[in-house]
Simulated assay, not measured.
Amino acid sequence: MDLNDIPMSPHDDQAKKHALLAYLFMVLGLFTGIFWLIGAVWAMAKARDARGSIFYDHYQNIIGIFWWGLGLSLIGFVLALFFVGYLLLLGVWIWSIVKLFKGLARLTSDKPYNS
Rank of each mutant, 00 (worst) to 15 (best):
F25P: 05
I54T: 07
I75A: 15
R48C: 01
A15P: 02
Q60D: 09
Y113V: 01
Y86H: 11
L81I: 15
I94L: 15
D2N: 12
V98L: 10
N4Y: 05
G39V: 07
A19K: 06
L28V: 07
Y23R: 07
G76Y: 03
F55R: 06
G64V: 08
I63W: 13
L90H: 04
I63F: 06
F83K: 01
N61Y: 06
R51M: 07
A19F: 00
G71P: 02
L37D: 09
D12I: 04
K111V: 03
G91P: 03
F82Y: 07
H18F: 02
I65V: 11
S9N: 02
I65E: 08
Q60G: 15
G103R: 13
A80C: 12
S96L: 01
I97W: 06
M1L: 14
L87F: 13
K102T: 12
D13K: 13
I34R: 07
R106S: 03
A80F: 05
G71L: 08
G64Q: 06
F25N: 09
F35P: 05
L79N: 11
Y59K: 07
Q60K: 15
G39R: 01
I75V: 15
Y23E: 00
P7Q: 11
K46P: 01
F25R: 14
K46S: 11
Y59G: 04
S109L: 07
I62H: 00
R51E: 10
V78P: 04
I65R: 03
Y56G: 01
R106K: 11
L70Y: 01
F82G: 11
L87A: 11
A47V: 08
L3K: 11
D13E: 14
L89W: 05
W95F: 04
A105C: 04
T32F: 09
F35Y: 05
M44K: 15
L104V: 14
K17P: 00
G91H: 00
F82H: 04
F66E: 09
L79R: 07
D2G: 09
S53P: 00
F101L: 10
M1A: 15
N4E: 09
L100G: 05
A22M: 06
K111L: 13
D49N: 07
D5F: 12
K17T: 08
